[in-house]
């Protein structure tokens, strides 16, 4: 089934000028169907550049990218089909809205796929439901909505193309904590229901720790870690050295351990931490 393979991908901005800059250096990745991946990196670490390679918006300076076993930069490869299979939601996606009402804007993607009108509208409706937008907003101008709602509309615009891999570049940037949790919960729910592959790009471990099953950490254009969350967080000292941090829970558990409480430090969520601390306290003969 749909999988993406990146094989020795390099990307250089402004090659041959004084501003030449290697944004990606020898990236090797296999993204399997159904995975929930967090792509973490500091600003300028190359994560946005990387995701633009996944649907062929940028072509690697060297190296290959395979989708379902076919090289996406072969001349006979259908890029349009790829872009419907790998849905990319950009940073601040609400800036791309342009139609007179919410519904037509969401229709834009499926319409570009050349589907008939009924199918387009069905998909748009389903997508808007998937992001949890209620009917009353469908025929409003997208510009009259709140920031969080606009973002949902924009995400629906990509979902309506029925991608098999959904890539979200900082989907929570600029949202308040409540809006952030709502969007992330919605994405997690969507993944459970449809089983699509989700790649969540973020600079905050805290955001993704709760949801993802695999974390890829990028630093200066290279992959630093690629593992399950607990393994990645155990390297919290190294993460700090590149300007990232493990979730606060990790720090608390480490501190508890140091002060003598016998807890398991491989904890990634607050709920796990609670159970673990209670267990340790019970065991402790005080």
């Amino acid at each position: 089934m749909s999988s993406l393979i990146l094989d020795h991908v390099n990307y250089i901005y402004e090659a041959g000028t004084a501003m030449e800059f290697a944004a990606l250096k020898d990236i090797n990745l296999v993204i399997n169907k159904g995975e929930f991946i967090g792509l973490i990196g500091h600003t300028g670490s190359g994560k946005s550049t990387l995701v633009q390679h996944l649907n062929g918006l940028l072509a690697p300076s060297s190296g290959n990218i395979f989708f379902d076993g076919a090289d996406i930069h072969d001349s006979d490869f259908d890029k349009k089909r790829l872009r419907s299979k790998v849905g990319l939601v950009f940073q601040y996606p609400e800036h791309q809205l342009f139609e007179i009402d919410v519904f037509s804007d969401v229709c834009f993607g499926p319409k570009n796929l050349g589907l008939d009108r009924k199918e387009v509208e069905l998909r748009a409706y389903a997508a808007l439901k998937q992001v949890g937008l209620s009917d009353e907003y469908f025929y409003q101008s997208p510009f009259d909505l709140s920031g969080g709602q606009k973002r949902r509309v924009a995400i629906a615009g990509v979902l309506a193309m029925k991608p098999e891999i959904l890539v979200l570049d900082e989907p929570t940037a600029g949202l308040d904590p409540k809006g952030r949790d709502e969007i992330l919960d919605q994405i997690a729910k969507l993944r459970e229901e449809t089983g699509i592959t989700v790649i969540l790009v973020s600079h905050s471990m805290e955001d993704v720790a709760k949801y993802v099953s695999r974390i890829i950490v990028m630093n200066r254009g290279q992959i630093m870690f690629d593992d399950v969350p607990r393994e990645v967080f155990s390297h919290y000292k190294e993460l700090e050295s590149v300007g990232l941090a493990a979730p606060q829970v990790t720090y608390i558990m480490q501190a508890l351990k140091k002060s003598g409480l016998d807890v398991d430090t491989d904890i990634t969520t607050i709920r796990e931490a609670k159970t673990e601390i209670l267990r340790a306290l019970k065991k402790e003969p005080s």
Binding site: R83, L88, F90, H95, G109, L113, G157, V158
Partner: peptide
């Protein structure tokens, strides 16, 4: 830069 970004975002939605 903005043009470039929006263009890419719309291409990602199948615009031609």
């Amino acid at each position: 830069e903005e043009t470039d970004k929006i263009m890419k975002a719309q291409i990602a939605r199948g615009a031609d």
